[in-house]
Nucleic acid binder design. Structure first.
Lengths: 128, 128
DNA sequence: GCTAGTAGGTACCAATTCGTAACTCATGGA
DNA sequence: TCCATGAGTTACGAATTGGTACCTACTAGC
């Protein structure tokens, strides 16, 4: 799946977070993880409705990747219609802290930037 | 630069880490941040030699993006030949903790996976 | 009999991404 | 005179990505 990543020689050993970041990225991954964390285990359709603009193809692909990385568990019940529930594994929950910190920093920066923009706008207004 | 990210309605507000993750990703970003953190401020060529297989184009583009996000500072001296030094900003250093934790988790998982593979290999050997 | 819902899979298509190779500018050295 | 250096920029081209539309199987409801 990531053929271009074969290049690195000695550098790869120095950056073990690379794998995780590659996992967390992709426009939808954080939404999925976030939803599974805050709303608990969910079925495919539920998840799809929550992320709204994601396509079924993408959601499937992301979930399969996350499953492959052992961050998400897939429970399949062969009822009719079938019922598939996704939940975070223990490994998935190990990211809670980091994701939380990331969210906190993101919000702080957003607030700082908003304050800066407001200050600049006030400055401009005072100057005219 | 990220035109596809306009879609989200109410969902975007619930995931402020999305911006940061989008920043941290891209095959090279973590290498760059890691190098600037561990080896201190560096010139373009130095950085390029450390990351080895990155192209000048990509390095420039990533550094510009990081600069735009205020994670990296660019100091340009118009000598001949020119001298450009890159360093982490305060904001860049705010990621130190998270990146460290991510690295720690990544290494732990790598070790766990290696142990698992070793166990499976031993099992196979015992079975034959 | 027709449609809707569940959980996807598949084919195709357009856009984006990333790498490679060549070019820039000014100077100092062989 | 030609080449190398530092820090890029630009053009081109191939591969990857992600979206849309359509297909599956099965059953319940109208």
């Amino acid at each position: 799946m990531d053929a271009k990543q074969i290049h690195h020689g000695k550098e790869s050993a120095s950056c073990p977070m690379d794998f995780i970041l590659r996992m967390l990225m992709g426009p939808w991954t954080t939404y999925i993880l976030y939803n599974l964390k805050t709303h608990g285990p969910q079925r495919f359709g539920e998840l799809k409705r929550r992320v709204a603009s994601i396509s079924a193809k993408m959601l499937t692909e992301r979930l399969r990747t996350l499953e492959g990385a052992a961050l998400v568990r897939r429970d399949y019940e062969a009822t009719i219609p079938p019922k598939v529930t996704y939940s975070l594994t223990q490994r998935g929950h190990e990211l809670d802290d980091v994701l939380g910190k990331l969210a906190e920093i993101g919000m702080r920066w957003e607030a700082e930037d908003a304050a800066l923009r407001a200050a600049r706008a006030a400055e401009l207004k005072a100057a005219e």
